[in-house]
Design a binder for these strands. Sequence first.
DNA 1: AGCACGCCGACT
DNA 2: GTCGGCGTGCTC
Length: 841
Amino acid sequence: MENADLSLFSTLDTDEVTVFADLILPIPVPRLFTYRVPRGMTDLLRIGARVIVPFGKKNSRVLTAIVAKLHNSPPTAYQARYISEVLDEYPLVTGYQLELFRWMAEYYMCTIGEVMNIALPSGLKISSQSKVQYNPDFDYPELLTEFEAVLLVELKKQPALSYDELGRLAGEGTNVPALIKSLVGKQAVIVFEEVKEKYIPKMVRKIRLHRNYEEREQLLVLLQRLEKLPKQQEVVMRYLSHVPMQRNPELNQKGLDKTILNQDDELSQSSLATLVKNQVFETFEVIQPRFADDHAPQVEIRLTEHQQRASDSIMAQFESQNVVLLHGITGSGKTEVYINLIQQALAGGSQVLYLLPEIALTTQIVVRLQRVFGDKMGIYHSKFSDNERVEVWKGVVSGRYQFVVGVRSSVFLPFDNLGLVIVDEEHETSYKQHDPAPRYHARDVAIMLAHWQQAKVLLGSATPALETYYQAKQGRYGLVELFNRFGNATLPDIRLVDTKREKQQKSMKQEFSSVLLESLGANMDRREQSILFQNRRGYSPYMQCEDCDWTAECDNCAVSLTYHQRDAELRCHYCGHKEQVPRTCPACGSTKVKTIGFGTEKLEDQLQIFFPDSKILRMDLDTTRAKNAYQQIIQEFETGGIDILVGTQMITKGLDFDNVSLVGIFDADRLIRFPDFRATERSFQMLTQVSGRAGRRAGRQGTVLIQTANPQQSILQKIIQNDYIGLYEEEIQERQNFNYPPFCRLIKLTIRHTDKRISQQAADRLAAELTDALGSSRVLGPEEPLIERIRNQFLFDILIKLERDKVNVKAVKAYIQDRINDILTDKGLRQVSIVADVDCL
DNA sequence: AGCACGCCGACT
DNA sequence: GTCGGCGTGCTC
């Protein structure tokens, strides 16, 4: 450290050179920020550690930053400011992550600050909270208003208060910012920033017997002594029943959660208090990990012959491939294979990451994994509180969690020794982040991540993304296929129901074909369960006047409003706008305002009429908003004697019910005809996944009924035959003919502005410039998207196609970014927003 | 992103 | 005459 003798000898030693740090700040500005490292901090500061810095004009903000680089070159153009605090003694962000951040910013055309913002749970970013305190040097009381004078007397007694706290003190209805401004002006108070860690470890109060009573004899003496104090004796006995220290005296040191001991009665509380006072018990606090240690027994997993062969084959292919695709039909028992591979990787001492789509994670799969891995497994999920996410992050740093199951964002966890990454349901589009940048695809990021850490990647799906299967066919990925259902369960019998014919025969009852109604009835009689799938929530998607054709539309978006019967309102599914249901047509006054089309709510309604005695549940965004609603519905469906579950696509993912033998699918045609080059692939995936919910138990074949007006469609035939490969071959040919992924990369540019002409103008100019540089075959548009206006912003899309290997993608992206920046700084095109979505889906 | 600075309408 | 609306520009 500071050594006087040494400094005498050194002419220009490093201690004398000012150290600068290039920092990643959580703001969307495409560069790092250079700060000075204060003298005493230089030895302490590591790359990857978090620091607190002042930021903005007049240091108006306080931000958490990450050290990306340390150096000695002072910036020439400005005076660097000082770092104010170091938050981490050791890097919180690993070198691999910094590399990942840089790569993502470049690849996904965003800033490194945006990556940091999404990567770190907000509990690891500091909150800067303004605090107000009485100014001890205040001496102009004559300036104060009467109200302020009264308030100040109170304030004098208090420690520093936050804005909110001051507001409460001043009373309801006070204009707090104005009050503070006034008080600050009169120098009556001081305002300052208090920096604190947002993350608060959870503390648990525990008790244990005093050391004196750990010996068996002493304990007996104690119990003897308490003979006359039955209440106290009972408390000790209760403690001993939870902590069997007769067998193992060391258990006492771990103690017992205080709340367990005095659950119900207040009497035991006072008895306990006395025992603590008399030093029979002692209390202590420990930091409680937020994930309860359930000491789960290590369940032995037995693989079937097919599973074992798949597992062996995957391991063999890992010898020569970094990525292997496990293509296994629904219900083939991929999870057991995963578990087997995870165990092998963990035994080898490396970390494992298991990615699941958001919804699938909340379900049975986690329970199954927990039974095997117990508290060694971390769970990273958006439904968890921020503190819990920080816990997992720190647990990965400390080595507590070698294995994490998580959603998309868990690719950002600070792994440094990954051996295996599993991406389950690899085709799921929810792996692609849409809204805030970085618009990343977790599957692709996982592959990069694994590449840097020399880890292996296993992609799993019953219906792989076309891109993925193509890579496997090209030999760039390994491929293992599982075509047998677990425990010899058979695949469901999938049948098409011709709704056009039933309509002609007048045998349709509302949305239900006679075939479906009969099957539902028969299924109920057998006390078996059914699932109905309609990928549309609400009661009906349109409300229309029969006389003048007026339809209810959103004021802010170019979409029709959906009628929600339960809340008796019209809702926009894009901006959340709500309206009352009109009694008469707003345009012509007619009373013949009808609903058109149907969603899950309407199906539920009609079902209840057809089957008055049945128990029906609905699962969609509207019924799963509450915290645990999702699990509750699943639980109720499993155990609550429910006959029918009606749901949107969220029922397609990862649910595993034994007693479901019928699946009904509505409006398959709408899925198939969706105007998008991926519509066929999507339909196949979605319909196959829903179908897979039927008949997962061995010895009984499930039935799937797909209602369609056009049973001849080739894709429906493929679904019936479970012919993924046939679909792949047909579809890949189309993709090649029209040059779509996997034969090219797509970048979608979306231009938005409240003024349609300005939006159009910016889009035209951008498209023209890009066409000039890239050629017209690579630039499509601009064109209005299907929904041309959202939240009062007019949208235009430009699609850029870059063929693989032929184009310097890096350079093209940089060029596109330049053109975008040109437009954004053009005086005439102010406040247009342009968003680039790389590898858009 | 968020915050300050700066230039035009309804109010003590 | 001021408070405050939000357009514009910058952040080490």
